[in-house]
Design a protein around this nucleic acid. Structure first.
Length: 231
DNA sequence: GCGACAG
DNA sequence: ATCTTGTCGC
């Protein structure tokens, strides 16, 4: 898919934070009127201690079958350290490289991290959703900001994630007896739709299938294992 | 100043 | 996140 270059990635911490504040003003937390869910794209990046490269994967799944339709990968040297709040500056470049190799244009993108639930309202799902100009959702295993209580025990039970007096996400129980996940809208997305799509993509596991697949494939890519792109 | 801190 | 062994439960 075609993705326009919007800004430099070669920035220091202060410069990256300024870019986030500027981009956050462009976020649209509403689903397009013609939105139809037919395909989803899971995005994830893996890396290792003695390896300064990052391994990105974008995997497209059909909905509601959730079968893999296409896989795109990219390997890049890591150009930015992991700094809480600046994850997209480390994982964004490799993910965009992989996404540009995608033939399909998925209806929605799921990222392993936050969307709105971020110190400046621009987690990786919001940042990349804006650059892609497509609906995006952040699904994180742990919160970055915000306060919350424990959601009920049943799959689908939720509680709001609140930061500075406002809801920034939803704590969602995807599976009984398992820790909840932290869902937040990225771009062209709202709280309810983000939560419902995430839950609809959960099968027998805690994480939604697009992200599970992306996670699995990025690890295989790093280990040099074969990844078939013919489905 | 101290603690917290997506992946 | 990664590293890394065993352990608990379906």
């Amino acid at each position: 898919m075609i993705i326009h270059d919007a800004h430099s990635w070669e920035l220091d911490v202060a410069g990256a934070q300024e870019v986030q504040r500027q981009l956050a003003q462009k976020l649209r937390l509403q689903v397009p009127g013609d939105f139809r869910l037919t395909s989803l794209c899971g995005c994830d990046v893996s890396g290792a201690k003695n390896d300064d490269r990052v391994y990105a994967v974008a995997v497209v799944l059909s909905y509601p079958e959730l079968t893999v339709k296409e896989v795109a990968t990219a390997v890049c040297p890591a150009t930015f350290p992991y700094v809480p709040g600046l994850l997209s500056f480390r994982e964004g470049p490799p993910l965009l490289k992989a996404l540009r190799r995608l033939r399909a244009v998925p209806d929605v993108f799921l990222f392993d991290g936050q969307g709105l639930a971020h110190p400046r309202g621009l987690g990786i799902a919001s940042h990349l959703g804006l650059l892609l100009e497509r609906p995006a959702i952040g699904v994180a295993k742990k919160p970055l900001v915000g306060v919350y209580t424990s959601p009920g025990p049943e799959p689908g039970d939720t509680v709001p994630l609140v930061y500075r007096e406002h809801q920034v996400g939803t704590v969602l129980r995807t599976k009984r007896g398992v820790k909840p996940v932290f869902v937040s809208p990225g771009h062209l997305m709202d709280f309810d739709t983000a939560t419902r799509i995430t839950l609809a993509c959960c099968r027998s596991y805690r994480l939604p299938e697009p992200i599970r697949q992306a996670h699995h494939l990025s690890n295989r890519l790093r280990r040099g294992e074969k990844i078939s792109n013919i489905y």
